[in-house]
Write a protein that binds this DNA or RNA. Sequence first.
DNA 1: TATTAAGTTTACGAAAACGTCAACTTGGAG
DNA 2: CTCCAAGTTGACGTTTTCGTAAACTTAATA
Lengths: 139, 139
Amino acid sequence: MSEEGLFSISELATMFDISSRTIRYYEEVGMLTPETRDRLSKQRSYTNQERRRLKMILRGKKLGFSLQEIKEMIEMYEANPEGAEEKQAIIRHADRKIQDINEQILQLQILRDEIVAHKERYIQKSDSNEMDKDKNKNL
Amino acid sequence: MSEEGLFSISELATMFDISSRTIRYYEEVGMLTPETRDRLSKQRSYTNQERRRLKMILRGKKLGFSLQEIKEMIEMYEANPEGAEEKQAIIRHADRKIQDINEQILQLQILRDEIVAHKERYIQKSDSNEMDKDKNKNL
DNA sequence: TATTAAGTTTACGAAAACGTCAACTTGGAG
DNA sequence: CTCCAAGTTGACGTTTTCGTAAACTTAATA
C-alpha cells in the first residue's frame, strides 16, 4: 500500500474499470497531470486530487460530454483568477453551463416521457390481460 | 413548393442546419430511408415521417447518444412485433431506456447543483460588494 | 436553349478517443 | 542475481461521424 492517497496507474485503471492507455491519453491531452512522477523510475503516481479529476472526467463522458467540454468545465472548476473581470467571466461561463444542463435535463425528460407514453400505448395494444402488474414503475 | 409535406434533401438540411452529406450518411447507415426516390431523377424526397425521424436523431445527438443507440431507440419506437414475447422484450427494453434516462437526469442534476454551489462559493469569495444582484437565477 | 444551381455516387480525408503492438526499463519476489 | 509483472514511450491501427473533392446527371432560371 502506497503512503495513503497515492495510486499507481493500474490502480486507478482497475478502480474505474478503464485502461491505462486511457489514463495516459487523458494526460496526453492535458486533462490529468500526475505531477508526481518518480524522476528515476519515471512512473506515474496519482493523488486523491487527480483521482477526483478522473472521476469527473468519466462522469462527464457518461453524460455525453466531449473531452474538450469536460476539460473546459474542469478548468472552470479549478480556475483561480486575478481581476474582477476574470471572475465575472467565469461566473458567466458557469451560468451558461447551468443553462445548458437545464436544457439537457428538459430534453431528457421529454424523451423519457415520450418513451413512457409509447410504452403505455404499447401495453394498451398488447393482450389486454395480464397487464397492470408493473405500472407506475417509472418516475 | 412540393405537394405539401414533401421535402428535398437541402430543404431538410437548411431546416435543421445540417449538411446534405449528413442526411445521406444517416441513410447510408440505415437510419433514414426516403422510400420516395424518384426513379428517373434519383432524387431523394422526404415525408413528414422522415422529417420527424431526423428530428429524433438530432435530438438524440444533442443529448450525447451515439447514432447506434439512437438507431436502437428508433427501432424500438417503430417496431411492430408479432408474438407476446417480442412485445414483452420491447417493453423491457423501454424500461431499461427509461431507467438509463432517469439515471442520466439525476447525474445531470447533481452536476448542475455542484456547478451552482461552486458559483455561489465563488461569488462569496468575490469582491463582496455588488453581488446579490443576480442570485437565484438558476432552478 | 444555355447556364447555373442542386443532386447523385464514389472515394479519400479527418478529428476524437482510444486499442494494440513493439522495444525497452524498472521494481519486487524468490 | 534472475525473472516476470508492471510501467514507459512511440507508432500505427480502428471506429465513429461526417467533410470534401471529383465526375456526372438533373432541375431551375434567365
